[in-house]
């Protein structure tokens, strides 16, 4: 493996007593807040990592998101706690992205290098579970090769299920621009994954 693979976990399901925990956290219970944040930390980190393409920056963004969430928890107005945490994480990641973009040394990954890496992954293992893991690794590797504007739009909309208005406001872009980035990003992903087509059989 040319670069360390992230430790993947399945998508985090809501906690059984989540509503009560959220109510306690909103009322100022630090223990309840810590439990919620701990539960969703890999959801938040996954989003930050896919937005930023960088493990260290993603950990910083997730840490910032926890602090922002703690400051904002008394203004929490219902809805899924996971979505709320993810929006805060996306904002924190964008703050870090903008700061990084002001430094000119930040180099984009070389797409050709990445394509070679993608081809190296080989054939899927026989079991369904392993094949799914293989598919996800291909998918993340391909996402990393997208131009940043397409990647962030696809990550927010298709990976994390945000609606296009939310994506537009998070990325400070027009709605039409967001849609076009998402479409172009998906089409580029499909090209990049052409050799793994059998993994994405409908």
């Amino acid at each position: 493996m040319p670069e360390p693979q992230p430790a993947a976990t399945r998508r985090t399901a809501p906690l059984p007593d989540e509503e009560a925990l959220v109510a306690r956290a909103v009322a100022g219970d630090r223990g309840a807040f810590a439990r919620l944040v701990e539960h969703y930390q890999s959801a938040c980190y996954g989003l930050a990592w896919r937005l930023l393409n960088d493990a260290e920056m993603a950990a910083d963004a997730t840490q910032d998101a926890f602090v922002h969430a703690f400051d904002a928890i008394d203004r929490y107005r219902g809805g899924a706690f996971r979505s709320w945490m993810l929006r805060i994480t996306a904002n924190a990641a964008y703050d870090i992205l903008r700061r990084a973009q002001r430094r000119p040394t930040q180099a984009l990954p070389d797409p050709a290098e990445g394509e070679a890496e993608l081809a190296d992954h080989g054939l899927p293992a026989p079991s369904d579970e392993a094949a799914r893991g293989e598919m996800y690794r291909h998918l993340d590797a391909a996402l990393r090769l997208l131009p940043e504007d397409q990647r962030t739009a696809v990550v927010l909309a298709d990976v994390y299920g945000m609606d296009y208005h939310q994506v537009a406001s998070l990325t400070s872009s027009a709605l039409g621009t967001v849609k076009s980035r998402i479409h172009r990003g998906r089409l580029r992903l499909r090209e990049l994954l052409a050799e793994q087509r059998e993994l994405f059989r409908p």
Binding site: P6, A7, A34, V37, Q41, S42, G46, W49, T62, V159
Partner: peptide
């Protein structure tokens, strides 16, 4: 369906 990702270092929850 892309899975969640475990952070590479422990994060401060509070």
């Amino acid at each position: 369906a892309l899975p969640d990702v475990t952070p590479p270092r422990p994060l401060r929850l509070l």
